[in-house]
Amino acid sequence: RQGFVPAAYVKKLDSGTGKELVLALYDYQEKSPREVTMKKGDILTLLNSTNKDWWKVEVN
Protein backbone atom coordinates (compact mmCIF):
# COMPACT_ATOMS: atom_id res chain seq x y z
CA ARG A 1 0.00 0.00 0.00
CA GLN A 2 1.33 3.43 -0.95
CA GLY A 3 0.73 6.77 0.71
CA PHE A 4 2.24 9.72 2.50
CA VAL A 5 3.84 10.04 5.93
CA PRO A 6 5.36 13.08 7.68
CA ALA A 7 9.03 13.37 6.67
CA ALA A 8 9.96 14.19 10.28
CA TYR A 9 8.64 10.76 11.36
CA VAL A 10 11.06 8.72 9.20
CA LYS A 11 14.81 8.43 8.64
CA LYS A 12 16.56 7.33 5.44
CA LEU A 13 18.49 4.07 5.68
CA ASP A 14 21.49 2.92 3.66
CA SER A 15 20.04 -0.29 2.24
CA GLY A 16 22.77 -1.17 -0.24
CA THR A 17 20.11 -2.79 -2.45
CA GLY A 18 19.38 0.14 -4.76
CA LYS A 19 15.99 0.63 -3.09
CA GLU A 20 15.64 3.66 -0.87
CA LEU A 21 14.36 2.57 2.53
CA VAL A 22 13.22 4.57 5.53
CA LEU A 23 12.83 3.65 9.19
CA ALA A 24 9.72 4.79 11.08
CA LEU A 25 10.90 6.74 14.13
CA TYR A 26 7.39 7.10 15.59
CA ASP A 27 3.93 5.59 15.27
CA TYR A 28 1.73 7.45 12.79
CA GLN A 29 -2.00 6.96 12.24
CA GLU A 30 -3.29 7.96 8.82
CA LYS A 31 -5.63 10.95 8.89
CA SER A 32 -6.73 10.87 5.24
CA PRO A 33 -6.99 8.26 2.44
CA ARG A 34 -3.73 9.58 0.90
CA GLU A 35 -1.72 8.74 4.03
CA VAL A 36 -0.58 5.39 5.46
CA THR A 37 -0.34 4.12 9.03
CA MET A 38 3.06 2.99 10.32
CA LYS A 39 4.47 1.78 13.61
CA LYS A 40 7.79 2.77 15.16
CA GLY A 41 10.46 0.44 13.79
CA ASP A 42 8.69 -0.30 10.48
CA ILE A 43 10.90 -0.35 7.37
CA LEU A 44 9.20 1.33 4.40
CA THR A 45 10.21 1.78 0.76
CA LEU A 46 10.73 5.45 -0.10
CA LEU A 47 9.06 6.37 -3.39
CA ASN A 48 9.32 10.17 -3.38
CA SER A 49 10.99 12.67 -1.04
CA THR A 50 10.76 15.87 -3.12
CA ASN A 51 8.32 17.48 -0.67
CA LYS A 52 10.18 18.49 2.50
CA ASP A 53 7.19 17.80 4.78
CA TRP A 54 5.51 14.68 3.35
CA TRP A 55 7.25 11.67 1.81
CA LYS A 56 5.52 9.05 -0.33
CA VAL A 57 6.26 5.53 0.87
CA GLU A 58 5.17 1.97 0.28
CA VAL A 59 4.30 -0.17 3.27
CA ASN A 60 5.94 -3.57 2.76
Rank of each mutant, 00 (worst) to 15 (best):
E30W: 06
K19G: 09
L46A: 02
P6A: 02
D27E: 05
A8M: 12
N48A: 09
W55Y: 07
W55D: 00
T37E: 03
K56L: 15
G3A: 04
V5I: 08
V59L: 12
G18Q: 10
Q2F: 08
K31G: 07
W54H: 03
V10P: 00
V22C: 12
L25I: 10
G41A: 03
V22R: 01
D53W: 15
K11Y: 09
N60T: 13
L13P: 02
L13E: 04
Q29P: 06
E58A: 10
V5D: 01
G41H: 05
F4S: 03
D14T: 14
T17W: 12
Q29W: 11
S49F: 07
D42H: 05
N60C: 13
G18W: 09
N60M: 15
L13K: 04
V10A: 03
V59T: 15
W54I: 03
L21A: 06
L44G: 05
L21Q: 11
R1Y: 07
L13V: 10
R1H: 07
T37Y: 04
K56Q: 12
D42F: 04
L44T: 01
D27G: 06
G41L: 03
A8Y: 09
F4V: 06
D27P: 06
R1D: 04
E20T: 15
S32Y: 06
A24E: 00
T17A: 13
A7M: 05
W54A: 02
L13F: 11
N48I: 07
G3F: 09
M38K: 00
V5P: 02
R34V: 11
D53R: 15
E30T: 09
E35V: 06
W54M: 05
K40P: 03
P33S: 11
L46K: 01
Y9N: 04
G3H: 02
G3W: 05
A7F: 03
Q2M: 09
A8V: 10
N60R: 13
L44F: 11
A8F: 08
W55K: 01
N51V: 05
K56T: 07
L47S: 02
K39S: 09
K12I: 11
V22K: 00
S32L: 07
L13T: 05
F4W: 15
K39Y: 11
K11A: 11
L25G: 02
G18H: 11
T37V: 03
D53A: 12
T45W: 13
D42E: 10
V10F: 06
Q2V: 13
V5E: 00
K12L: 12
L25W: 03
V57I: 06
N51W: 07
Y28S: 01
E58H: 05
V5R: 00
P6F: 05
E58K: 08
K56C: 14
T50Q: 12
I43W: 04
S15F: 11
T37M: 05
L47M: 07
P6N: 03
Q2S: 11
L13Q: 05
S32V: 04
L47A: 02
R34H: 13
K12Y: 08
V5S: 00
S15K: 11
G16E: 12
G41V: 01
I43N: 03
Y28A: 01
E35C: 07
D42R: 03
T37K: 04
L23D: 00
K11N: 06
K11H: 09
T50A: 11
K52H: 11
A7G: 04
G41F: 05
V36C: 08
T17F: 13
M38Y: 01
L47K: 05
E58M: 10
D27T: 06
K12N: 05
S49G: 10
L25R: 04
I43C: 06
E20V: 15
V5Y: 00
Q29I: 14
K31I: 06
T17V: 13
V10R: 01
L23K: 08
N60W: 14
P33I: 09
V22N: 01
T17H: 14
R1N: 06
V57P: 00
K12F: 07
R34M: 13
S15D: 12
A8E: 09
N48Q: 09
D53H: 15
D42S: 07
L23Q: 13
S15I: 12
R34G: 14
K56S: 07
K40D: 02
K39L: 08
K52M: 11
V22W: 08
N48R: 07
T17N: 15
S32C: 09
N60V: 12
L47F: 03
D27N: 08
T45Q: 10
N48M: 07
E58L: 08
V36R: 02
T50I: 08
T37H: 05
K19S: 10
P6C: 06
L46P: 00
R1L: 07
V36Q: 03
K19T: 12
E35D: 05
E35W: 04
D27F: 04
S15H: 12
L23Y: 10
G41K: 02
N51Q: 09
D14P: 15
A24H: 00
K11C: 15
L23F: 08
I43K: 05
S32R: 09
Y28W: 09
D53S: 12
V57E: 00
S32Q: 08
Q2L: 07
W55A: 03
L21P: 01
V57G: 00
A7W: 02
E30M: 13
S49T: 10
N48W: 07
E20H: 14
D14N: 14
D27K: 03
K40G: 05
V57L: 03
K19P: 14
Y26V: 11
V36L: 15
V57R: 00
V22T: 02
V5L: 03
E35M: 05
W54D: 01
N60F: 14
N51E: 11
A7K: 07
V36D: 00
V5N: 01
L13G: 02
L21N: 05
K11P: 01
Q29K: 13
D27Q: 03
N51R: 10
T17E: 13
E35T: 08
T45I: 15
M38N: 00
V36G: 02
D27S: 08
K40F: 05
S32D: 10
Y28P: 00
M38P: 00
Q29G: 07
M38Q: 01
K56F: 15
T45K: 12
A24K: 01
L46Q: 00
K12V: 10
L25N: 02
G16A: 14
W54R: 03
S49C: 12
N51S: 09
W55F: 06
T45L: 15
T50P: 03
P6G: 02
F4P: 00
V36M: 11
T37Q: 05
L25S: 02
L47D: 01
L21T: 09
